[in-house]
Computed example of a mutant assay.
Amino acid sequence: MPSAATLEAFVAAVESGQHAQAIEDFYTEQASMRENQAEPRRGRAVLVAHERAVLARTASVASQCVRPVLVNGDHVVIRWIFDFTGTDGRRMHMEELAWQRWEGERIAEEEFFYDPAQMKPA
């Protein structure tokens, strides 16, 4: 179960735009991520590489945690709002729920739930 301090540090890292670094700092080596029940990506190195590829296509991203963060033992749910600006100037607003399973102070498994219609640039 993650400590309150660890959860706050994780949220702060994401909100400050350190998305890839947050994966390096807060995920287990064998962590997995999946989106809307798609096939999961596995391994922290793969997760970091994927995040860096996404960020390379963006000029900026603003990330906001909508509180409260819900915690039940090793399970955490965070509601996120992201505002992306692509390198082409297009903007995209996205809201999602991130369901996480923690092992101690690190995330072992994460699944994102969001409406894919949001992926269309505004």
Rank of each mutant, 00 (worst) to 15 (best):
M1K: 08
P2H: 02
S3R: 04
A5W: 03
T6E: 08
L7R: 02
E8N: 14
V11H: 05
Q18G: 14
H19C: 09
A20F: 08
I23C: 01
E24W: 08
F26S: 04
E29K: 13
M33T: 00
N36V: 07
A38N: 15
E39Y: 00
R41I: 13
R42E: 11
R42G: 01
G43L: 11
G43R: 09
L47D: 07
V48F: 09
R52K: 14
R52Q: 15
V54M: 06
V54H: 07
L55I: 00
L55A: 12
L55D: 11
A56E: 14
A56L: 01
R57V: 00
T58N: 13
A59C: 01
S63Y: 01
V66M: 13
P68T: 03
N72T: 03
V76K: 01
V77P: 01
R79P: 06
I81C: 12
T85H: 02
T85Q: 14
G86F: 11
G86K: 14
T87E: 06
D88L: 08
R90A: 12
E95K: 05
E96R: 10
A98M: 10
Q100E: 03
R101M: 00
R101S: 07
E105C: 07
E109Q: 14
E111I: 04
F112I: 08
F113K: 13
D115M: 04
D115A: 04
A117I: 07
Q118T: 10
